[in-house]
Amino acid sequence: MGSGEDSDLSFFYIENKSILLYNSIMKEEADILYDLFKIAAENSTQIADRFNEIKNKSNTEEKTILENFADFVKENWGLSINLKKSELISVLVSETYKNMYRVIEDDANELKQKLGITISIEETAKKSMGTFYEPRKIFEDSFVGGNHFLYSALNIGGMGLKKHGRSFSIIIHQSNVSEFPNCAFLKDESIRYIENGKPNIGRLSNDTSDRQTIHLMTAIKNKKSLLETKKENWPGMVCSEENYIEAITPGEIPIKCINTVRIAKQDDDWYYDMLFNARTISNRVDESDLRHLNEYGNLLKLLKKNGIDKEIIYETGN
């Protein structure tokens, strides 16, 4: 097959009982760097077609729910990044949300300047990421600008992925995401597309979307649970620890792009209850409570200074 023909080639094929789309940019030669954002953009037509196909196969009630959901996502989508308190303060102080390599690079420079110690960025990344390092590295090495990728989650409301004490959720509204040079969404976590030591570009190409069709891809992904989920639970359905859509953007996120920081009501209440006790019944608070309180106060000051809103989220459970 000549290269001219190859560049125009696209067809559907079956793999693991899934119908997948092949096109010329999926050539799996080892030396090829794929363009994730281009793949995402080129998948728009396929996503729109699949959404229409699902809609056409649905009854009137299902069709209405599907359309209402897609409209809701289109209206409300944004990106969320969940952080621990100390991490959020670092982001606010440095005025940038950086990817892991940049954070290690900055730490390495500081160590070199202050103590004259040189550390290997790759070795440090490997050490801090453990078994997670290898698939992430393979994923990033497969794409143009991969080591500048920054990961977040699609969010249509709620606290996002707050497991392991990451109880502060940075929210970037879609109006600010549209300012980013690019943004690609993946139905699943990026490292899950690594199979046998390389990315499954066929599956990934089928599962990716850009900003234009993200509402349709979200509807396609959640079509089954959507019919059993009340509207108020849509945010939790779209973004939970077990099920979320990963967003990938190139480069760093300056804090001027952050619109809101969300905190659960029970956490905000804990800080203010400590403040009440510290001001009135001082024997109910200890040194660690007071330091937590001081940090929260600093965090709120930094949010105010940077024009970032604090939003309280009412939720049940922990």
Partner: peptide
């Protein structure tokens, strides 16, 4: 640091 009374009031 552990906040002073003034810092707590400022909160």
């Amino acid at each position: 640091k552990v906040p002073t009374t003034e810092e707590l009031t400022a909160l």
